[in-house]
């Protein structure tokens, strides 16, 4: 594991902790998109289907469990918690997130490593994660002034993506197997995108 990957994981973890802190401390989820949170829960549930079949490391396993549990807890709070759910900006959070799920599913069916249940859902989770932030960004724009913790949540989420991209660039130049794999995926995705256009 390189330093970019670790920094990415940590900023990802911090973003989730900031979000939990905001909901817990203010008993409010205003400014947070339930659509985005549900998409992230779906991302983790579909990506970590390998939790019981492939072991990578204790670190990976614990982080996977933390991501699944925390994303489900956030969705639970926003939907079920007696106080928290009242502060949800339902009328502003109207992004049609089903289209994002549909687009990710179609892309996963077209571009994947193997045509197996696990691989299709793994590819689906990768595409969906790239799109899942959209409802949150739309809500952010609509709600105008945003509280500090919500702003910091989105900032750390962005930092996580930035560090992961640096990690991929680093791995591209240092791991031959990785760069070949990325090259194949990238070509396949571009082919599909151009075919669509």
């Amino acid at each position: 594991m390189n330093i970019f990957r670790f920094a990415g994981d940590m900023t990802h973890l911090i973003s989730i902790l900031v979000l939990l802190l905001k909901i817990y401390a203010t008993k409010s989820c205003s400014g947070i998109s339930l659509k985005t949170q549900e998409l992230y829960a779906l991302v983790f549930l579909t990506r970590y289907l390998d939790l019981f079949t492939d072991f990578i490391s204790v670190y990976n396993t614990i982080m996977k469990l933390v991501f699944i549990a925390s994303s489900l807890a956030i969705v639970w709070c926003m939907r079920m918690h007696r106080v928290v759910r009242r502060s949800y900006d339902k009328d502003l959070d109207t992004f049609r997130h089903y289209f994002l799920i549909l687009a990710s599913l179609i892309l996963a069916l077209l571009v994947h490593e193997k045509f197996t249940f696990q691989e299709i859902f793994w590819a689906f989770s990768i595409y969906l994660e790239a799109l899942a932030i959209l409802p949150q960004l739309v809500l952010l724009q609509r709600s105008g002034n945003v509280d500090n913790l919500t702003g910091q949540y989105v900032f750390f989420l962005g930092a996580y993506r930035a560090f992961y991209i640096l990690n991929w660039i680093y791995r591209y130049f240092t791991e031959q197997r990785f760069s070949r794999w990325i090259g194949e995926r990238l070509r396949a995705v571009l082919l599909v995108v151009f075919a669509y256009l």
């Binding site: 990976n60 490593e113 793994w122 990768i126 990690n167 990785f178 990325i182």
Partner: peptide, 10 residues
């Protein structure tokens, strides 16, 4: 495992 790439990430 034959498949490489991003599977060892989160």
């Amino acid at each position: 495992a034959e498949s490489s790439g991003l599977k060892d990430e989160l």
